[in-house]
């Protein structure tokens, strides 16, 4: 049996999974803690891709082009986007906490439309991509882009880091407690508004990281965010809202199923994912790893 095409799909599926994980982790945290389903999450990811590109280009002009410039570019974009997230929470999302769910959805959906056009205004219609010029390496009888391993490594590192943050630090424990009972956390004298702002900034920061590491792999294009956000919803639903482990496993399921479906049914890859979502929602609405508590 020729395993080359399968290996290729596996690696691209896993790197896709890691990007989905970075996005869905933030989405899931924000929903878990603040009860806000952020439709604009992938649009913020897209925006951070463009920001990373601009910083990368700027650094290249100042100090000479080098693939390593991507690292400070991503760091800069994460910082910028975390600030943007903080400001969004402070000035917009904060006003909708006591509102009904549909209104919250519509507010973040309005941000999708606005930010999409802001990107168009600033960067135009052209797709943006960073070419690192890495040479594919030969393994398993096929050529693999080694950058995919960078993405997979980043995803795993962030997953471990997030787990440590949520389970080993005081702040992380507060965030986890807030997922279970906001009013109880608040009653213990912990300033909930600060936790909200922090979680939102953290979520957007993770999205920015995903945008940055994604750039050398696939071009950033207008409208991609709409495809990605529904896949992130799929991940979060399959894994269970608020569960980091669930989000991680579900990202791998969605990423790998997607890239293997492409082999067999190119146009229907996303249909497969929605089939899984439907099956999970019907059988276990709280997701594979979620607890029935939130349902």
């Amino acid at each position: 049996m020729d395993i080359a095409p399968y290996a290729l799909q596996l690696f691209s599926g896993l790197s896709r999974a890691m990007v989905l994980f970075l996005l869905s982790a933030g989405l899931s945290l924000i929903f878990g803690v603040m009860n806000i389903l952020n439709f604009a999450h992938a649009t913020l990811w897209l925006l951070s891709g463009y920001v990373t590109f601009s910083i990368f280009t700027f650094l290249g002009q100042q100090f000479g082009a080098s693939p390593w410039m991507l690292v400070p570019a991503i760091a800069g974009a994460v910082a910028v986007m975390a600030l943007v997230g903080f400001a969004l929470e402070r000035f917009l999302i904060r006003h909708t906490y006591d509102r009904e769910l549909p209104e919250q959805l519509l507010l973040t959906f309005a941000l999708v439309l606005i930010l999409g056009d802001v990107i168009k205004l600033i960067w135009g219609l052209e797709n943006r991509r960073i070419n690192l010029g890495v040479r594919p390496i030969e393994m398993l009888d096929t050529l693999v882009n080694p950058y995919q391993f960078v993405i997979i490594g980043t995803g795993v590192a962030v997953a471990v880091g997030l787990w440590l943050f949520l389970h080993r630090t005081r702040l992380g424990k507060i965030v986890r407690a807030a997922v279970y009972s906001r009013s109880m956390v608040s009653a213990l004298g912990i300033p909930i508004p600060k936790i909200y702002a922090l979680v939102f900034a953290l979520g957007v920061g993770l999205a920015a990281l995903a945008g940055g590491v994604f750039l050398p792999l696939l071009p950033m294009a207008l409208g991609v965010d709409l495809d990605i956000i529904v896949q992130c919803f799929a991940v979060v639903v399959i894994g269970g809202f608020g569960s980091m482990l669930g989000t991680f496993v579900a990202s791998i399921i969605v990423g790998v199923v997607y890239s293997f479906s492409i082999l067999f049914w190119p146009d229907g890859a996303l249909a497969m994912i929605f089939l899984i979502v439907i099956a999970v929602l019907i059988v276990r609405p709280w997701g594979l790893f979620g607890t029935e508590l939130r349902y």
Binding site: V230, D267, G268, A271, F274, I278, L281, P285
Partner: peptide, 28 residues
């Protein structure tokens, strides 16, 4: 038949998933 078993955010996402599924069936 499936959607009315859920409410709130889960209803929203299940209808979204069915809608997208039908979209991709028609699309492909």
């Amino acid at each position: 038949f499936f959607c009315v078993r859920l409410t709130g955010i889960y209803f929203a996402i299940l209808t979204l998933a069915f809608g997208e599924l039908l979209f991709y069936i028609v699309f492909s």
